[in-house]
C-alpha cells in the first residue's frame, strides 16, 4: 500500500501454482494488491511483504490453492492470547480498535 511497509520476510502466505485455475478471485479480494496476473492467465504472488495475512484470498479460493495463517495484526490481541493461552483475541468488540473503527468510511482501521 502506498507509503506503508511493515516487517518483511514474515508473511505466511503460500500459493500453490498447480492448483491455480486463473479464476482471479484473489485479485479482487486482496486489499494490498499482493497478487498479479501471469502471462498464462494464472496468478502469482508479486508482493509477499505487502501481505497482512487477512485471509480473504484463501477464504475465497475455491480450489484450495492458497494457504496462510490468518489473524489479527494487533499487539493487544496477541498479548491477550499469550496471557490467556488462547488464540489472539481482540476481545468482544466492546471498546478497543475493533469496537470503534470507522470501517464503512473506508474501513481504514483494525484488520482482523
Amino acid at each position: 500500500m502506498r507509503g506503508f511497509r511493515y516487517l518483511s520476510g514474515v508473511a505466511s502466505l503460500k500459493l500453490n501454482a498447480e492448483k491455480c485455475t486463473g479464476c482471479r478471485v484473489c485479485l479482487s479480494v486482496c486489499p494490498h494488491a499482493v497478487f498479479t496476473e501471469t502471462d498464462d492467465r494464472r496468478v502469482r504472488v508479486a508482493d509477499l511483504d505487502a501481505c497482512m495475512e487477512c485471509g480473504a484470498c484463501a477464504k475465497n479460493c475455491a480450489f484450495g490453492a492458497i494457504s496462510l495463517k490468518p489473524g489479527v495484526g494487533c499487539a493487544e490481541a496477541i498479548i491477550n492470547g499469550w496471557l490467556r493461552g488462547t488464540e489472539p483475541s481482540c476481545g468482544d468488540g466492546s471498546g478497543g480498535c475493533c469496537g470503534t473503527a470507522p470501517m464503512a468510511e473506508g474501513e481504514p482501521a483494525a484488520p482482523a
Binding site: V10, E53, K69, G73, C74, A75, A101, P111
Partner: peptide, 20 residues
C-alpha cells in the same frame, strides 16, 4: 505505538508477533 498496529490496515500478525 506498537499497540497502534491493531488499528492499522497493513500489519500482519506474523510481523506483530515477531516485533513483540
Amino acid at each position: 505505538g506498537l499497540n497502534f498496529t491493531g488499528a492499522t490496515p497493513f500489519t500482519s500478525p506474523s510481523g506483530v508477533e515477531k516485533e513483540l
